[in-house]
Design a protein around this nucleic acid. Structure first.
Length: 273
DNA sequence: GCGATCCTGGCC
DNA sequence: GGCCAGGATCGC
């Protein structure tokens, strides 16, 4: 479900929880914990202080005062929702509960369980984070680095390249389609057929569309909400995503849908070459 | 590189 | 009932 702008919006909405204490941390029997045991995760975070909430790609990082970091991925259907008082009944598919000392309760809810909860105790020890390329919105990530990353995958189509988190982190299906539209590049074009100047367009377009997504609070297509239950309005600015058979939002061309890697791609063949 | 797969739910 | 969904991994 959520991509970089949605995760960043969730992060910002939850920053007020920093410095509170996790009094009671609970996991459901189906909680999608990976690369460590549930009991270790519970032990590491129960009765600790939450000191920092940060983000890497589409992962949220909860660091406590014991230098342990909970690495949260929301998959397709995951949500982190804050409540002042514990809701009754607890929502279906709640897989983690953080009861805080001062500020209420935070729930991790994930019906499809494509998300993951994992642990990081020191630099470069988390398999998920280790696989990630640079964040698109990192100030030090520059064009030359992006081009170098792209050239390692000459046979990939550009859409596939965009979704590859080891090239660069943060893009998902919505913003990949949007970035390719803004760069006027076909999602089917091979990296090896793409000039440096075109990759530059893709890089700049990607950074811009992610920035806009953050400014608009993310894309609430059906059920995305930030940590406080607020919707984002980026949906109203999407040019091609989910517009099969319609004109692009700006009215410049007509959108078709194709399938790549078992996922839908929306694009405008007249404008994207 | 690609298609299938993990899962639940909503919509036609 | 079938198809589709803001993701990522694992096989041929």
């Amino acid at each position: 479900m959520p991509e970089l702008p949605e995760i960043e919006s969730i992060r910002r909405s939850l920053l007020f929880l920093q410095s509170d204490f996790i009094e009671n941390f609970k996991l459901s029997s189906l909680a999608p914990v990976e690369h460590c045991s549930k009991s270790e995760l519970l032990k590491k975070f129960n009765n600790t202080q939450l000191v920092q909430i940060s983000r890497r790609g589409k992962y949220l990082l909860f660091e406590n005062d014991q230098s342990c970091t909970l690495v949260i991925h929301l998959g397709m259907s995951g949500k982190l929702l804050y409540f002042k008082n514990t809701p009754h009944p607890i929502p279906l598919h709640t897989h983690a509960t953080f009861v805080l000392k001062n500020k209420g309760v935070l729930l991790y809810i994930d019906p499809r369980r494509f998300g993951t909860l994992s642990l990081s105790l020191e630099a470069n020890d988390n398999p998920f984070l280790n696989r990630l390329g640079p964040d698109y919105d990192h100030p030090n990530f520059n064009l030359q680095q992006f081009i170098t990353q792209c050239r390692r995958h000459p046979k990939l189509q550009l859409k596939t390249l965009c979704l590859n988190q080891s090239v660069a982190a943060g893009l998902g299906n919505i913003y990949a389609c949007e970035a390719l539209y803004h760069a006027r590049l076909s999602p089917l074009k091979l990296v090896q057929k793409t000039k440096d100047a075109e990759l530059e367009r893709l890089f700049q377009a990607t950074r811009q569309v992610l920035k806009l997504g953050i400014e608009k609070g993310g894309s609430s297509l059906k059920d995305y909400l930030d940590g406080l239950g607020n919707r984002g309005v980026m949906k109203d600015f999407l040019q091609v995503y989910d517009r099969e058979g319609q004109k692009t939002l700006d009215g410049l061309g007509k959108v078709i849908r194709i399938t790549q890697q078992n996922r839908s791609t929306w694009y405008c063949p007249e404008l994207q070459k």
